[in-house]
Design a protein around this nucleic acid. Sequence first.
DNA 1: GATGAATGAGCCTTCATTCAT
DNA 2: AATGAATGAAGGCTCATTCAT
Lengths: 196, 196, 196, 196
Amino acid sequence: MPKIGMPEIRRPQLIRATMEVIKQVGFLNASVAKIGQQASISPSIINHYFDGKSGLVEATMRSILKDLATGINMRLANVPKDDMVGRIEAIVGENFSTHQQDEAVVKTWLAFWAQAMHDPALNRLQRVNEKRLLSYLRFELKRCMPHQQAQMVATSIAALIDGIWLRGALNPQGIDSSLARQVITDYLSLYLKTES
Amino acid sequence: MPKIGMPEIRRPQLIRATMEVIKQVGFLNASVAKIGQQASISPSIINHYFDGKSGLVEATMRSILKDLATGINMRLANVPKDDMVGRIEAIVGENFSTHQQDEAVVKTWLAFWAQAMHDPALNRLQRVNEKRLLSYLRFELKRCMPHQQAQMVATSIAALIDGIWLRGALNPQGIDSSLARQVITDYLSLYLKTES
Amino acid sequence: MPKIGMPEIRRPQLIRATMEVIKQVGFLNASVAKIGQQASISPSIINHYFDGKSGLVEATMRSILKDLATGINMRLANVPKDDMVGRIEAIVGENFSTHQQDEAVVKTWLAFWAQAMHDPALNRLQRVNEKRLLSYLRFELKRCMPHQQAQMVATSIAALIDGIWLRGALNPQGIDSSLARQVITDYLSLYLKTES
Amino acid sequence: MPKIGMPEIRRPQLIRATMEVIKQVGFLNASVAKIGQQASISPSIINHYFDGKSGLVEATMRSILKDLATGINMRLANVPKDDMVGRIEAIVGENFSTHQQDEAVVKTWLAFWAQAMHDPALNRLQRVNEKRLLSYLRFELKRCMPHQQAQMVATSIAALIDGIWLRGALNPQGIDSSLARQVITDYLSLYLKTES
DNA sequence: GATGAATGAGCCTTCATTCAT
DNA sequence: AATGAATGAAGGCTCATTCAT
């Protein structure tokens, strides 16, 4: 019998190594050789566990997306169902959480976006994630405004999240996450005030 | 002996070919061989005119940034100096112009962003561009709101531009540019309304 | 502790899987991984039973050669000792039997020949088989012609067998075995006629 | 301007190196690295001139086939049109010429046959060559026998050629080419004598 | 100015094998 | 007996770049 439980050790280990290498040298230069070295394992093992490099890249992105979704759900669990603003702030907050600002995570996100335009598997992942964020926001907003309007505000908030995140990612000083949250909160409260 | 006028022919030719190849196969697979083939020129010549591939990539991005700046200035020239909303709409409008939505341009932009995190030369370009947009917006906004707030609104609008653009870039259906402009105009009018 | 009787199960199972894989992907691409998969066993076990891949290849060829020898002897058992033509036809017939025309067997044979030039173990096998065929034929022919001529005719018939077999193997339509037998019978009768 | 005339130097050089390496280590182990080393050139250049390893292999086989065809035609040019036996002997003779017995050529042939079963490009080459030999033989034979019969005798002679050649190839002592020619000549003359 | 010849580094992947369990 | 974990070597190929012409 072989050693058991290795997949549960190796897979996260390699995924983390992948992010680390992307952080250090960029997606373009993140070779399996470097990833293996980072994880202190033979690069060949990547094929054993992920069926090739693209499988590893996909799994890596899937891991980040899952972390985001989990984080959002955990925050939402602590906010009353009827506290709409609070719930939206929770969603926004998780998008600017410390974990999402980890340099390795940030660089992987960006590389993922650029790559998604040419890789069907990544594209699919990206689309699912995009729609999920919109649907979460819309769900909360629909409680106090018509569908049409909720759709538009959700789009705006999602765009603000991505835009602020992107500008922060490209900025050496990183994201000022409290400012980010404030900008979005201001927009929302201003909007609600004016409409009523 | 060097034929005169060749650089003026070759450089734009190769820059355009670069964008075309990035559009077709992605930044990752855009080799000098393919670029040369696309331009029907020997790839070797790239080193002659751009001192290596990275020089070509940088020049390509510089060309796109210049097109954007030129477009904005041309639009602004047609809007009265005191029409603040009109001038901001002009800036926004150019960011979603048909040229900026050219698939080759879009993919180059995105690749440029991802690459800028690891390439100092590209990073510098990106920073300059980012600051210019902010300064343009802030300049207009300061006419009717305090500096502090102008800074914040400018940041938000810039984020909206990038966020909407990014989401559009990743969406197979492309950007709905009239919707984009409307979202941003609405956002702006929201802030102006509270001021009055 | 070793289960008894397993070698008798595993060895033929792996040999058959080897032929099947060679048939599907060719000798060049017949890896132990694919063979293991084909047999639904872990590839590692090959080393246990055959001491490495080359041992398996050798055993596979040995199995085919043994089948051929067995088949010939069975046919000869049904032909009277003094029916020289009948006995030679039996030998020829077995060389073009349906089993020897099984695509997996054919491809293994051919790969075996090509490989035998560089692998001493396979070469030895091939030489033994070659000599056995010649000796069988010569033994029958010597009854009605001088040794010298028997040697020559035996060589010719062996060459005809291999030549026709080879041309058939390379032909998508396979071997026309009745034509093959006829050509060789005609050839033989030609020599017998001149003797009488 | 680049160096001119290089393709005419490099292509035969690499083809010869390929045969040499196949002779030394077998088709299975004939890597581009070894071929490049044998030719004292960088292996990368193979892609430049042959568009990949398979292109080189194909070109190598094509070269051998062309040599054979040229040799046959040269021999035929020296034999009167009406000397049927002489012309057939010329064809047979070239198939056992010293050049065709060059160890490198022999091993390449055999590897080529084994490989042709799985490589469409090689298969096509092999088929063309096979048909050409048959058609040459049939053309001569039809002068003194009906089509049906000519076809059968041509098949027999072709099989004898391949069979004797194959057995010689696998034999460490090589081919006894005068014996080979004699066997075939005997068969032909015996056949003609008996039929008339 | 422009070409293609040529190179060496690096890429991902496949492979046969060994080993702990 | 049998498995899967793990490795290191080797494979073909792509690439950016340099150079002679």
